[in-house]
């Protein structure tokens, strides 16, 4: 489904700020894989997702989606393959546009835009039903500007937009991190449900070790631009937060102290 082959990403090449964010990452996801991604700040998690999404080009290596080489395609050209949710709830929606207009934009992800009407009456019905499944009452506020929603509501909407047109790949970058614990749990539940219903191939970055263990069928840990742990199946099910802490310490050379967010794992 997704194959990342020896991908290198260097920021600010040839300057004093040169930073190698990905040091030749190789990763293969099978259809239906739900991979959680953990690692310390600056480990390269977001960069990996962004390079897969085509936000920036890689310096070397190849990326294949469904067997197709997409390395040379830029972000908007790759959008037809993937749904994405970002850490910042503001980033996934257009604030001045109505809920239904945002959904309509997402419904046409990767399609050629025409002079047909932007939101048709028949699709509004679909949106109403889909919004109802979020259980946030948004189905009765479809004409409301998204800017008036709370961060959690916006994030749930962004998630719905990401899967509205079933993507080949779902990329979630700490999409629950900016939310209060209760809302975060709700968004994660929705995430699980959508992924199961549609057997979506997913990469989910999180700083929460417990979430990383509880969700998905596979877990990878990144450190300094490399994948240092990759467990799946039985092995992942047996994984504990303590195990991960040990790995984390080892990956960061033993001397680094895990961030509080990771230690708490609440």
């Amino acid at each position: 489904m997704l194959r990342v082959e020896n991908v290198v990403k260097i920021f600010n090449r040839g300057t004093v700020n040169e930073k190698t964010a990905l040091e030749g990452v190789t990763l293969t996801l099978s259809e239906g894989d739900f991979v959680t991604v953990i690692g310390g700040n600056g480990a390269g998690k977001s960069t990996l997702l962004n390079v897969v999404a085509g936000v920036y080009p890689s310096d070397s290596g190849h990326i294949y989606i469904d067997g197709r080489d997409v390395t040379k395609l830029v972000e908007y050209q790759r959008a037809k393959y993937m749904g994405r949710v970002f850490q910042d709830p503001m980033m996934g929606t257009a604030a001045d546009m109505e809920i239904e207009e945002n959904l309509a934009l997402a419904m046409r992800r990767g399609q050629r835009r025409t002079l047909r009407w932007g939101v048709t009456a028949s699709e509004k019905k679909i949106y109403r039903d889909m919004l109802a499944t979020l259980e946030l009452g948004l189905e009765n506020r479809m004409g409301v500007k998204v800017g008036l929603l709370s961060g959690g509501q916006r994030q749930a909407l962004t998630l719905l937009m990401a899967i509205l047109k079933t993507p080949k790949l779902l990329l979630l970058d700490e999409h629950a991190a900016a939310l209060d614990p209760k809302t975060a749990r709700k968004v994660l539940e929705l995430t699980d449900r959508f992924i199961q219903e549609r057997t979506l191939t997913t990469m989910m970055v999180t700083h929460n070790m417990r979430d990383a263990i509880q969700h998905g069928n596979r877990l990878i840990m990144m450190s300094a631009g490399q994948i240092v742990v990759d467990v799946s199946g039985e092995q992942k099910m047996r994984l504990t937060v303590e195990d991960l802490m040990v790995e984390f310490e080892r990956a960061s050379g033993g001397d680094a102290i895990a961030s509080d967010r990771m230690l708490l794992g609440n």
Binding site: E75, A79, G92, T93, E101, R113
Partner: peptide
């Protein structure tokens, strides 16, 4: 037209929708 309006709001989101 909707795509143009969204562009004024949020380039990120628009590109993520394949525009």
């Amino acid at each position: 037209g909707s795509a143009i309006r969204a562009t004024g709001n949020n380039h990120n989101m628009v590109r993520a929708q394949g525009i």
